[in-house]
Amino acid sequence: MTPIVPLMGSVALGAVAQISLRHGMASPKRNVGSGLPVSPWVALWGLCFAAATVLWIAALRHADISYAYPMLGAGYILVTILARWLLREHVSRKRWIAVLIITLGVMMVGANR
């Protein structure tokens, strides 16, 4: 299996995890013990987070870190798009520019040269 499949899966699930966490934190009911909201979205966050981690480790078995790492940069754009689309968050133009610069930086950090 080419590493691109688990890699992209990991990035996508990681993004879904952050979106569901943010959505779930809006729930008014709080668990007294953990302080976490009683919400299926928080559970989805845990599941996606775990699955993304497993896929990431699987991808690293077949891919060099310098190849895998830059792909993580895509996660920042994806989270921002999903936050705007699904959570109706306001994303200013300045913030879009910042996200693009950060993505570029993450991609360079993964570079091998």
């Binding site: 943010r22 959570l87 968050e89 950060i102």
Partner: peptide, 8 residues
């Protein structure tokens, strides 16, 4: 805070 701010 909003996730589009915190995550990046």
């Amino acid at each position: 805070s909003s996730i589009s701010y915190l995550y990046p």
